[in-house]
Design a protein around this nucleic acid. Structure first.
Lengths: 189, 189
DNA sequence: ATCACTTTTTACCAAATGGTAAATGCTTCC
DNA sequence: GGAAGCATTTACCATTTGGTAAAAAGTGAT
């Protein structure tokens, strides 16, 4: 709980009364490894904040390959934002990579907070922009690097994630086959 | 002028008085091919809207290679947003790929608009989120596709751009060498 | 038209990555 | 503890891409 408030306070000031109100709307959700937080073809009903665990955003590309588009770990905001906001059918799914503990907010509660707390929209806008920028900063450089460099920068950007995420997911995130990634690991030592 | 207003109205409603006020703050700027709209190591002083022309976002990676991180063309918003907002030194530069005609706003004028028009911040937040999402949608899939597929989806996403942008820039955007791109072009026919 | 300059195409070989398949290692469940 | 089911590593070869270099094509200025 505390963690979520600290996270939010990065993006704007709120008093105790306001943060209490926000937390009064929060529910907790536990996901088992491989459970879905939201699914492709369905409308995302919640946004979340990861207390513990790792999730990934995925989709299937034209060739039917499952692509891991990003990882989100502890103390970060999770949302298929555009689809959640507009309550539209998602094209990506969000899946627990490990067992997870989340704080979640329904669309209604999220809107309630917006209608109650002045400046909440500005805060969430910053949160979302921040998430999007982080995604770009992490993903975009992968396009122009070779596989080994991609893997090394993955380790740098997500220290501590490598050992908790299956190799196949990391490979899919990096845009290489798991055989290549395995080979790269060997060559690095 | 009209185009910019139409663009903005996608993200929220404004009356004539408000749009007039916005336009009263706009200046026009012409850039020659290869001129910089903003430079790495300097603070971005303006945001812009492209009336005519194409610009690209670039940076140099660790190996000293120039990476084209994105292209922006006619009737789109151009801004190194995070750095502009915070008036921080940029790490990327924005360069005209063709001769360009832009509407631009200084930081002060942009803020003036925000202080005058209720809801302007919400509108620009949506604009920025939209730009970031578009960037992710375009760039991210490149990671997991082979060079030919990348090129084909580039053509799809930016129809009409291929013939106005030097091959070397396209190659750099796609994360491949220009020799490879040239070869791919040949094989496609 | 010619020259100088830049961009694009080719060619050739080396290196990196993918595809297929099998072997090994690691969990989980009984 | 053993068997079944995944996950990871290895191996082998085919394919793709990169690096270097040179040729060809395009552009602009005089």
């Amino acid at each position: 709980m505390k963690e979520f408030i600290n996270y939010v306070l990065q993006f704007g000031n709120l008093n105790k009364q306001q943060t209490d109100f926000i937390l009064s709307k929060a529910k907790t959700l536990e996901l088992h490894k491989d459970d879905y937080f939201s699914e492709a073809g369905k409308i995302p009903r919640h946004v979340g904040f990861i207390i513990e665990g790792i999730v990934r955003f995925c989709y299937y590309n034209n060739r039917g390959e499952e692509i891991t588009h990003s990882f989100i770990d502890e103390h970060n905001f999770v949302s298929d934002q555009q689809k959640f906001e507009a309550q539209m059918v998602a094209s990506e799914y969000i899946q627990a990579v490990t067992n997870c503990k989340l704080l979640i907010f329904s669309k209604k509660d999220w809107d309630d907070i917006g209608n109650t707390i002045v400046g909440w929209e500005a805060i969430t806008s910053l949160m979302v922009k921040n998430c999007l920028l982080k995604t770009i900063e992490r993903r975009s450089p992968l396009v122009s690097e070779d596989a080994t460099t991609r893997y090394l920068s993955f380790i740098e950007q997500f220290p501590g994630l490598v050992n908790r995420v299956p190799l196949s997911h990391v490979a899919s995130y990096l845009g290489i086959t798991q055989q290549s990634l395995s080979r790269i690991r060997r060559n690095i030592r």
